[in-house]
Structure formats: structure tokens, C-alpha cells
């Protein structure tokens, strides 16, 4: 589903964020991306949703090379992909329902579809009772749930999470990770960049460690579970 072949990313200012990275993620996998700040995790994530373009190599998603993707083809890519962030990125003047529905409205879905899908996904993330609340009235964890709902409402094949628990306390963070795990079990591929090592250790999922722009360790689910 996701393939990186010999990918390097050098920013215009000369910073070498990624150097010769190879990575394969199969459909339905749950992958943690770990490593210190500035290691290249965020760059890697950005390459996946085509916010940045690789300087060298290939970034393939469902066999489409994102390096060659035309700007006009980005929307199609992103409609099959949900992205969540540390800083939520919710619209403060819209209610929970509107924030999630927005993702469907802007891709031209009709009113009925928007309402049904939005309510379903809000139920999935456990926010049925907060449909009409505004983001400011919600806790951090609830806000991130809204973001997850927004990312999922279009039923994407891939969910990308860039430090989704960075602003949350441990218990709330676990709530979000459990939610992502549940989504993964429904079949969505999940790629999550994180600093929360405690969570990574207990989740028994594949762990890819990035440092200095390179993948220095790639532990499969089996190995993690067996503590190899």
C-alpha cells in the first residue's frame, strides 16, 4: 500500500531531512514512527500526504508515485487518506458536527450523505452527545476525537497521524490510541508518528525508528511482541 524507495528529502535551505529511506507498509498495518525531534519523522509523514515532495526516490501509495503527482491530482490522493495533527486544526466557529461535515461538503457530497456519514463517525469516536458543541467547549482529547472523526468520515484507506497525542495527558492519549487501534481493526492502515514511548512499548505494533534522516530500526509486530 505504501512504499518508499530510496527516498531523500533536502529542503531548499540545504537541510537534509531524509537520506535514502526504504520503507514498505502493507494494507491494514499499524505502524509507529518513532525517533527524536528533528529526526525526519514529520518530513516522512508529509511526503505521504504530498505536503512535501521527495527530492530523490519514489513515494508510492497504491502504486501511484507521489513525486510525479500533478497538483491537480492531490485532491484525489487526499480523499483516500485521513490526517490528524498534534494541534488538531479544528475550525473554532463551527460546531463538532459542522467541523466533521465540512470534510464531506467540500468534496461535494449531498446533504443526506453528509448528515448520515457525520453522525455515524461521531458515534464511532464516542462524541454523539457533543454534536452541537464548539471546539472551545471540549477537552483536548475530545477535540482530537473530532479530528479523528473528520479524518475518517470519508472512509479513507489510510490514516496518518503526526504526534496525535502530543498535547494530551497519558490517560487521554491512551483513549486516542485505543480509538486508532479500533479503526485499524476495521481495516484502515494507520501510520502514527509519536514520542510516546510508553504507548509504543505496550501496543505491540510494528515500530520504525528514524534518526538523522535514516531508518535505523524496523521491528515487525512479531519481534516487538516477543521482545527481540
Amino acid at each position: 500500500m505504501i512504499k518508499l524507495r530510496n527516498v531523500s528529502k533536502i529542503y531548499p535551505n540545504g537541510a537534509r531531512a531524509l537520506i535514502g529511506v526504504n520503507l514498505k507498509i502493507a494494507k491494514g498495518e499499524f505502524v509507529f514512527l518513532v525517533g527524536p525531534s528533528g529526526a525526519g519523522k514529520s518530513t516522512l509523514i508529509k511526503l505521504l500526504y504530498r505536503e512535501e515532495i521527495a527530492t530523490r526516490g519514489q513515494v508510492l501509495i497504491n502504486n501511484v508515485n507521489l513525486v510525479r503527482l500533478k497538483n491537480s491530482q492531490i485532491p484525489a490522493l487526499r480523499r483516500n487518506m485521513g490526517v490528524i495533527f498534534q494541534d488538531f486544526k479544528l475550525l473554532p466557529n463551527k460546531t463538532v458536527f459542522e467541523n466533521v461535515a465540512f470534510a464531506l461538503q467540500v468534496i461535494g457530497k449531498n446533504k443526506k450523505e453528509v448528515k448520515e456519514s457525520t453522525l455515524t463517525v461521531l458515534d464511532l469516536v464516542g462524541l454523539s452527545s457533543k454534536v452541537n458543541a464548539f471546539p472551545a467547549e471540549l477537552s483536548g482529547g475530545e477535540q482530537q476525537r473530532v479530528c479523528v472523526a473528520r479524518a475518517l468520515v470519508n472512509r479513507p484507506g489510510i490514516l496518518i497521524a503526526d504526534e496525535p497525542t502530543g498535547n494530551l495527558d497519558v490517560d487521554t492519549a491512551w483513549g486516542i490510541v485505543d480509538l486508532l487501534d479500533k479503526i485499524n481493526k476495521y481495516g484502515t492502515t494507520v501510520v502514527m508518528a509519536t514520542h510516546a514511548l510508553q504507548i509504543v512499548e505496550q501496543m505491540n505494533k510494528r515500530v520504525v525508528r528514524v534518526e538523522g534522516g535514516k531508518i535505523i530500526e524496523d521491528k515487525a509486530e512479531e519481534e516487538v511482541r516477543l521482545g527481540i
Binding site: Y49, N71, S72, I74, P75, A76, L77, R78, R79, M81, V83, K89, L91, F102, A103, V106, I107, G108, R150, N154
Partner: peptide, 16 residues
């Protein structure tokens, strides 16, 4: 700006 950013993120077309 934020709204536009999110629109692009969820795959709204450029013309949209």
C-alpha cells in the same frame, strides 16, 4: 487560511 488548509487536507479540489 485555516479553513483553506483543512479544505486542501481533506481533498477539496483546487477550483473548489
Amino acid at each position: 487560511e485555516k479553513e483553506i488548509q483543512i479544505m486542501r487536507l481533506v481533498g477539496a479540489s483546487n477550483s473548489f
